[in-house]
Amino acid sequence: MLDARPAVRQTFAELAAWVRARPPRLGRVRLVAVDGPSGSGKTVFAGRLAEALGGAPLVHTDDLLDGWDDQFTFWPRLERLVLDPLRQGSTPTYRAYDWGSGTFDGPEITVEPAPVVLLEGVSAARRGIRPSLSFAVFVVAPPDLRFRRAVERDGDDSVAFRAYLERWRAAEDRHFAEDETAAAADLIVDGAAATGDDSFMRRGR
């Protein structure tokens, strides 16, 4: 999934300027999707971009999933609780999913309808939302690195967790191939490259 062309360093300040220059397409909001496979570095990248955008609101799709089996079918919930209110200029508020209890009893999250809102997670840049996106990012990294990151992040090296993770990875690979997510993205990011907080490595754009 890595682009063979050389990576080029770019600053988050430059990317933030690109994003601000794009027209809003979700009502008055510039919605930026940060997509890519699990463990690629989406969350870190999205957090740094949010900071470069002056603390732009950041929505994580994992907070809207009803467990492992809701990998892609969560989207109507995201539309109802987050995207539709933003389109209408109102302020979404929802309860995050608690992966420990398996319920939506996590922290209450409020998303201000700011000029730019980031949506991060697997399938965040899926085909159905593209007309409403102002900018789409796809983050990539080698499979072995992504696997190690996922295990370290969740602190679970059990056989059961690895089975869930393998099933998840296979499903996301099928999704990205069918959806042609990377080809449609405005920016491909090398999530394996070590950079400072003010820059990242882009590929193929």
Rank of each mutant, 00 (worst) to 15 (best):
S38I: 03
L64K: 03
P76Q: 11
A33P: 08
G36P: 06
V59C: 10
W18D: 14
P115L: 09
L187Q: 13
D197N: 01
V140A: 12
L83G: 04
R48K: 10
R167D: 13
Y164H: 15
S90I: 05
L58P: 04
Q71E: 10
R80F: 10
A16L: 09
F135M: 06
F72T: 00
L145E: 12
Y164M: 03
R162T: 01
F104R: 00
R162C: 09
R174G: 07
A183C: 06
A125W: 15
T11I: 06
T93H: 15
V44L: 11
W68V: 01
F135R: 00
A124K: 06
G204M: 07
V159H: 11
F104G: 09
P6D: 10
L65K: 12
T73I: 02
I129T: 12
D154Y: 08
D66W: 02
A16I: 06
L119I: 02
Y94E: 06
A50K: 12
R167Y: 08
A46H: 05
A50D: 14
L15C: 13
L15V: 06
A192G: 12
L26P: 15
R127G: 14
Q71A: 08
D156W: 06
H60T: 02
F45Q: 01
L2T: 02
V117A: 13
P115S: 14
A136L: 06
D190P: 07
W18Y: 12
E166A: 15
A171W: 05
A21V: 02
F74T: 03
H175C: 04
F176N: 04
S132T: 09
F147S: 03
R130K: 14
A141K: 01
P6A: 09
W168D: 04
F12A: 10
Y94W: 11
S199Q: 11
V151Q: 03
E166V: 04
D3M: 05
R28M: 13
G67N: 01
A16V: 04
V116H: 11
L78D: 03
R30K: 14
A46V: 05
V44W: 12
E172D: 10
V189M: 12
R203Y: 10
R30T: 08
R22G: 11
Y97C: 05
E166K: 06
R30D: 15
L86C: 09
V116Y: 15
